[in-house]
């Protein structure tokens, strides 16, 4: 079985995003970029399935600028076998991403497409579900545990009330939540080896996908700022404040 792992290059998890003064977006010039943390978890899970003998090959895919190669090299250094970069400088919305991934899945016929539940830049939380719809295949979103069992995969999902387990026939789409695993760091020898692993470059038009945005972003602004309040000296003062709020 092959596993397809889409990864996105996004602003680093630890960087505080700054909104551009003209309201056109978030300033990404000279900002540290990394692999979307949820996608890292997806790469890790795919590698673990391969290590457990459940998968033979892991193909990492990224849709984005030339620099997304770095993100793919990270996936290769972690343990993916080869990579495909669908290069574009345009911002590609989840629906178009899902269409490109569908075309790649048609060519590669993976048993599982494993991807992060959301990207920490646009916070859309859509791509996996959309891909599943386009492929007409089942989806195990917000995965906490993934077990491949013959021709199906059992996914324990993080839901509002706790956990829910579903059984999906393969091929299936799995989107990863935070607690699925802890991604490994790539070792230096593996980083060197990753440079020699195959990385193919394509364009959205190779897959016949129109990436013109369907949503027009007319403005991006700072959220309302919360002012820091006051600090109280001791518990008695805090008790008085809480009582004044009328909740105790």
């Amino acid at each position: 079985m092959k596993i397809l792992v889409p990864v996105k290059r996004v602003i680093d998890y630890n960087v505080k995003p700054r909104v551009k003064a003209d309201g056109s977006g978030v300033d990404l010039a000279n900002v540290k970029m990394s692999m979307n943390p949820f996608d890292e978890i997806a790469v890790e899970e795919a590698i673990r399935l391969k290590e457990a003998g459940k998968a033979e090959e892991i193909i990492a895919v990224s849709i984005g600028p030339a620099k997304a190669q770095e993100t793919l090299r990270t996936a290769l250094a972690m343990g993916a076998d080869r990579a495909i970069l669908v290069e574009t400088d345009d911002e590609v919305e989840p629906l178009a991403v899902a269409k490109i991934l569908k075309a790649i899945a048609d060519e590669e016929t993976p048993g599982i497409v494993m991807l992060g539940k959301q990207a920490i830049d646009d916070d859309s939380n859509q791509t996996g579900q959309m891909l599943a719809a386009l492929m007409g295949r089942p989806q195990g979103t917000f995965a906490n545990t993934v077990e491949v069992d013959g021709d199906s995969v059992v996914v324990k999902r993080e839901v509002d009330g706790g956990l829910e387990t579903v059984k999906l026939s393969l091929p299936a789409i799995v989107t990863t939540d935070l607690r699925l695993n802890e991604p490994r760091y790539a070792s230096l020898p593996n980083i060197m080896k990753a440079k020699k692993k195959p990385l193919e470059t394509k364009s959205p038009s190779d897959y016949g996908v129109d990436t013109a945005p369907r949503l027009k972003t007319t403005n991006v602004s700072e959220p309302p700022v919360r002012q820091a309040g006051e600090k109280v000296e001791d518990v008695d003062a805090l008790v008085a404040k809480i009582k004044a709020l009328g909740i105790a």
Partner: peptide, 23 residues
């Protein structure tokens, strides 16, 4: 935008060829 809504809505959107507006 509960886990149920987030699970279902994008699947509906893709079936309709619509780009969802999340959250």
């Amino acid at each position: 935008a509960t886990t149920t809504g987030k699970n279902i809505a994008p699947r509906v959107a893709a079936l309709l060829d619509v780009m969802q507006v999340s959250d």
